[in-house]
Simulated scan of single mutants.
Amino acid sequence: MRKIATVSLGLAVAAVTTLAAATASAQAWPDRPVRMMVGFGAGGGTDIIARIIAQPLSEILGQPVVVENKAGAGGTIAADAVAKSAKDGHTIFMMNNGHAVSASLYKSLPYDSQTSFAPVSLVATMPLLITAGNDVAVKDAKGLIELVKAQPGKVRFASVGVGSTQHFAGLIFRSIAGLEMRHIPYRGTPAAIAAVRGGEVELLFEVAAPVIGQIKGGELKALAVTSAQRFPALPDVPTIAEAGLKGYDVTTWYGLAFPADTPAAIVTKMNAAVKTALAKPEVRKQVEDAYFLPATSTPAEFGTHIGSEIKRWADVAKDAGVTQQ
């Protein structure tokens, strides 16, 4: 009995010591710059919202929050880097719903899209736009569908890369409308926009933030918005559902997550920092001026959201007959 009691006491002491160490670590966190990993190139929607939120987080946390772009494979390269990083709160992932899409698009990934991450909070949402160069002779999604049907296999659509939300939105549009379009991936939004403006491709599926300025400036034209409702910043642009594709709804979201097993106290502290940042009027204005809709959540709520999105896109991919890569 004495031996068992001694062992039990030893385990209890070890548990208390571990908890005390974790608490002390969380209280000291962050003690150096925090890397915010973005899975897409500079200038895209994910990069824009990451840079907007990084500045106030730096001020709140007392350490620089540095945005690091690690583009490629629909954001999965950055996701893998974060999943495998130290679980000390100094590497965080700015994910978007392409993270959930990738779980359905790829046959295998080097991480689990849900369990390899510790959700922190939603940050913002935004619809996508179907845009075209001014030399494309259509003005809305209905006209686009007619054009593609008249030229099967000839119309090309660009995205920021295979496996991205933009790519998947194009695949779903193509499948539901029964169209033959070719996908041309680019490494980042600036290259994809240049391709559309230069006539290399006819269409671009992209989140609103990086293209809305060029749409308002007349360099590109918006054919449709991908959300269920019209976008307040472009109220005259119809939805894809209005073109006859009932039920089409693709709205991208952005949120932060640490690698799994990051101490809960650090997750809680970062969640509070995100909420504090987005509660600042000047930060909310900056977010909204960039055409994002601010959004926050608890870590548990964000985790549930990620899980539901993974299931949703798996169901959509199956119904649309999307082939895994």
Rank of each mutant, 00 (worst) to 15 (best):
K3S: 04
V13I: 06
A24F: 13
S25Y: 13
A28Q: 08
P30L: 00
D31N: 10
V34W: 04
R35G: 01
I52Q: 07
I52V: 09
E59L: 12
Q63W: 03
A71P: 15
A73G: 06
K87N: 15
D88I: 02
N96Y: 10
H99M: 07
V101M: 02
S104H: 07
D112Q: 14
A118W: 09
A132H: 09
K139S: 02
D140F: 12
K142Y: 10
K142M: 09
Q151G: 01
G153W: 14
V160K: 04
G161S: 10
A169S: 12
I172L: 03
F173D: 01
F173P: 01
R174S: 02
R174I: 03
I184M: 09
A209Y: 08
I212V: 15
G218A: 04
A224I: 15
A233V: 13
L234Y: 14
L234N: 15
D236A: 00
D236L: 00
A241S: 10
G244M: 13
G247V: 07
V250S: 06
V250D: 05
T252R: 07
L256T: 04
F258S: 02
K275A: 00
K275S: 10
K280C: 04
Q286K: 15
P294F: 03
T296P: 08
T298E: 10
I306F: 08
G307T: 12
A317K: 05
K318I: 01
V322E: 05
